[in-house]
């Protein structure tokens, strides 16, 4: 018998004892967060871009406040909601591309070999994106305040704004995850991005709906749920506590969240098509 040189390994515990859902989610989530923060360079662009647009359009479109009936006299107040939604859309791409990469590389298969539960996998994977969304929202809020945006709904409104924008980020992240799970490639996820941006611009993001001149555009904006996400965020800045706007915003955000999370869940199950 050959001389045993390798060190003695401690035997692993019983493989049948699988980690709990929470523990699994945290483990996968930790990885997802670590990934995001180790690719800071990739974080910067999605975070800065909406700010650049905010800075430019906040000034370039400020003549719009002179349109009779415009709700504020500072266009930046009106526009602040926009970066939150844009940031959330970028988050959806980050989340989707990261998940797609795991599918393409086979990392998901590796995880599928463990007793990992589908829910834990999904929530954990979205964890990094969620954190990214929260960080972005705080940055946007601070930038808004620093550039003189004042909150009609006060500090409480700012908190609600953060909460809503995190819910929105989570909803969009789930959507990105869903696309990744369905199509399994990063390109497919990236490909949806223009479409998301289209929905943003074809909404009441730049002008209040009642001031949109072209009726067909106004109709599109009215049927576009993104309008209500924006209007809810915006109401906290320019109106105060507008219960209807908030209800619509939270409603549509939750609806998107529930639907895409639910579909992701079943897509994840078929992706982890282990027997």
């Amino acid at each position: 018998m050959a001389v045993e040189t390798a060190i003695d390994l401690p035997r692993a515990g019983h493989p049948s004892r699988s980690a709990g859902l929470v523990e699994q989610t945290l483990a996968v989530g930790r990885r997802s967060v670590v990934r995001v923060f180790r690719q800071r360079a990739l974080m910067i662009f999605p975070m800065i871009f909406p700010l650049i647009l905010f800075a430019i359009n906040g000034s370039a479109l400020s003549p719009a406040t002179r349109i009779p009936g415009f709700p504020t006299d500072n266009y930046r107040d009106f526009l602040l909601a926009m970066p939150f939604i844009q940031g959330a859309m970028f988050v959806s791409i980050t989340a989707g591309v990261d998940l797609a990469r795991d599918i393409e590389s086979g990392f998901l298969n590796r995880l599928a070999m463990t007793p990992l539960r589908g829910e834990a996998m999904l929530l954990g994977q979205l964890g990094g994106a969620l954190l990214l969304g929260a960080v972005q929202a705080i940055v946007y809020l601070l930038v808004g305040v620093a550039t003189g945006v004042s909150f009609a709904s006060g500090v409480g409104g700012a908190v609600v704004l953060l909460v809503l924008s995190i819910v929105i980020s989570f909803a969009f992240a789930s959507l990105g995850g869903l696309l990744a799970l369905r199509f399994g490639t990063g390109e497919a996820v990236q490909g949806i991005f223009p479409l998301l941006f289209v929905t943003l611009f074809l909404s009441s993001s730049s002008l209040p709906r009642n001031l949109i001149k072209a009726t067909w555009f106004r109709d599109i904006a009215t049927y576009n749920p993104v309008s209500y996400l924006i209007e809810a965020l915006r109401s906290l800045v320019i109106t105060g506590w507008d219960v209807q706007a908030l209800a619509l915003g939270f409603g549509f955000a939750s609806l998107l969240l529930v639907i895409s999370l639910g579909l992701s869940q079943s897509a994840m199950r078929s992706r982890l098509a282990r027997t």
């Binding site: 692993a12 515990g13 493989p15 049948s16 004892r17 699988s18 980690a19 523990e23 699994q24 483990a27 996968v28 930790r30 990885r31 590796r110 995880l111 463990t114 007793p115 990992l116």
Partner: peptide, 9 residues
């Protein structure tokens, strides 16, 4: 990560 998911104490 693998050890956690495999349920090692």
């Amino acid at each position: 990560l693998q050890a956690t998911l495999q349920g090692l104490p």
